[in-house]
Amino acid sequence: MTEDNRKKKFPHKHLLGIEGLEPPSINYLINLSQQFVDELKLSSNKLSFLKNKTCINLFFENSTRTRTSFELAGKKLGADILNISLGSSSIKKGETLIDTAMTLNAMQPNIIVVRHNDAGAVKLLSEKVNCSVINAGDGPHEHPTQALLDALTILRRKKTISGLKVAICGDILHSRVARSNIHLLNTLGAEVRVIAPATLIPNHIENMGVKIFYNMKMGLKEVDIIIMLRLQLERMSGSYVPSIREYFRFYGLDREKLKFAKSDALILHPGPMNRGVEIDSELADDIDRSAIFEQVQMGVAVRMACLKALLE
């Protein structure tokens, strides 16, 4: 390591995923986020860490929450923000991902935040640009800032992550949030379980260091944290799951199933929620149990930390 790199607290150019990040890097991002949470509380003034820096939010997939969160984070740090929601418009025009990357690169941004519906697409793009890249979700692969904000939320409530029992429930198969969380929580020493019908659990996930439960009550036994995942409606009508009512009956989080978890178990959900499908509406709104809206606040701080860390 050069003298320069040693000084750098976050020794990576990009944030493409949690997999492969060392505990010090993760802790650095979380601590920095923590500082921003406090700072945001103290004052609503803009900071100037990223003054005169250009930040492009490049979203190939619809997103409200994550894109807004990154935009707000960038603005709080004083950056100039460009939002590009390609949906699939330029793809329709025949431009390849690499062409898009090269075009944007020519505009000399300092950082690009990318969401894409294909796993690995963000990494491919990062190889073709000179600036830093943050993965804001690539297919069912990774969503690192979501995992970081979940960890921050847990830390603020439980003080530590090491030794906690965490259950991730729902559509594990299609979830990038699940994968990033599994990497992060395992790295920080939690015991991670996944709970879902077998059709929504990918093969060999036990090799990623999780215990599999098909029965939610058994899976929730004695857990400290419950991370509920969204199940998309089109996956619920006879393909992966027979029906909404069957899913809610066996895998929806309600008071009865929650009894099996520790009495102070905390509920997280990356949003957007399907009330009455994966979570009982009343539970989602119970601020003693659910940290769902706190997660959104943490999201901004975490994204500020990631932007700052990469541009330091």
Binding site: P197, P242, E246
Partner: peptide, 9 residues
Amino acid sequence: GKEISELQL
């Protein structure tokens, strides 16, 4: 033969 029924219910 297309969509699975409510097996667990």
